[in-house]
C-alpha cells in the first residue's frame, strides 16, 4: 500500500490517532532532515520536530486534502524550523556556532569535506532560500510542490534557486577536491 494511502485509509475511517501514527512512521525521517538542515543543532531539531508533530496532531482533523500529506507536513516542519531559526538568531552572538558548524559536528552527519563545504556555502544564503535549495537539490522535489510548501510562486522559486546556485557555485569553486562541484540548475 502506498504511504499516502495508508494515512488516508485511517483518516477516512475517522481514526485520527491511527492516521497520526502513520504520519509519524512515514514522515518522521524526512521531516527531521528538513529541520536539521535548517536548524543545525540536533537537540533543537528534535524539539522543533516535536513541535511540528504537535501542530500536525492539533490540526489533523481540519486537513481537507488540498495537498499531499507530505506537502502539508513539510510545510509545517519548514515553517517551524524557519521560525525557530529567526528566534534563535535574535540571541546569537558572533562567537556562537552557526548552522553548518553545529550540523557537521553532530552525530547524524557523516558527509565528506565536499559536503561540509556545500553546507558552509549554504550558510551564507537567507534561510528561506536555503530551504528552497535543499528541497530542490537534496530532495529533488518538483517546483510545484516546493511552491505549495513555501507559499511561493513557481517563477519566484526558479529565480530563487537560480540565485542560490550562482552563489553556491561561487563559494564551492574555492573547494577543489570533487564532490559537489556538480551543482547544476534544474528546470
Amino acid at each position: 500500500m502506498h504511504n499516502e494511502d495508508r494515512i488516508w485509509l485511517a483518516y477516512n475511517a475517522g481514526d485520527y490517532r491511527k492516521a497520526f501514527e502513520a504520519l509519524v512512521d512515514i514522515q518522521q525521517g524526512q521531516l527531521l532532515r528538513i529541520i536539521l538542515r535548517i536548524v543545525g543543532d540536533e537537540d533543537e531539531a528534535m524539539d522543533v520536530l516535536q513541535d511540528t508533530f504537535i501542530k500536525i496532531w492539533k490540526n489533523l482533523a481540519s486537513f481537507k486534502g488540498g495537498s499531499k500529506w507530505s506537502t502539508w507536513t513539510y510545510r509545517i516542519a519548514s515553517n517551524e524550523a524557519l521560525m525557530h531559526l529567526r528566534k534563535k538568531k535574535k540571541f546569537l552572538t558572533t562567537s556562537d556556532p552557526i548552522v553548518t558548524e553545529q550540523l557537521t559536528a553532530g552525530s547524524f552527519f557523516d558527509g565528506d569535506d565536499a559536503l561540509a563545504a556545500l553546507y558552509s556555502a549554504l550558510d551564507k544564503l537567507p534561510a528561506k532560500q536555503r530551504l528552497v535549495f535543499q528541497m530542490k537539490y537534496f530532495d529533488d522535489l518538483p517546483y510545484a510542490e516546493i511552491a505549495q510548501i513555501t507559499n511561493t510562486s513557481v517563477g519566484a522559486l526558479k529565480a530563487s534557486y537560480h540565485h542560490a546556485v550562482k552563489k553556491i557555485e561561487a563559494e564551492v569553486s574555492n573547494f577543489k577536491p570533487g564532490g559537489h562541484s556538480d551543482i547544476k540548475e534544474v528546470s
Binding site: Q28, G29, L32, R33, L36, R37, T104, F108, F109, D110, G111, D112, L115, A116, Y119, Q134, Y137, F138, D139, D140
Partner: peptide
C-alpha cells in the same frame, strides 16, 4: 533523483 545530504539517521533512532 535524491542526493546524499550527509545525514545518517538510523532506523533504530527513528
Amino acid at each position: 533523483m535524491k542526493k546524499n545530504d550527509g545525514l545518517n539517521i538510523s532506523e533504530q533512532f527513528l
